[in-house]
Amino acid sequence: MIIATAIALLVVMVLALVRALLGPTIHDRILAVNVFGTKTVLLISVICFISGRPEFLDIALVYALINFVSIIGVLKYFEYQGRDEREGMQ
């Protein structure tokens, strides 16, 4: 079942990437990247149990921190610049 979960996570990540590529707005892309990031955290934890190496959990934890901070940082940037940038980004 743990392998099935890993496959499900990979499917979810692919679907999130499809949404990130389709857009249509910058916020859809950020949302998809956020989903991709949290699923990466889970995938690292699952892989750590599949391969039996508990050290990977530290990487998952740090990835969760970085993902959260980067999403907030990107959002801070687009919260006030979105109006000027959106013609170029879409």
Binding site: T25, I26, H27, I30, L31, N34, I71, L75, K76, F78, E79, Y80, G82, R83, R86
Partner: peptide, 9 residues
């Protein structure tokens, strides 16, 4: 994310 979307487009 919702708040930022509200402020942008």
């Amino acid at each position: 994310l919702a708040k930022s979307a509200q402020h942008c487009d």
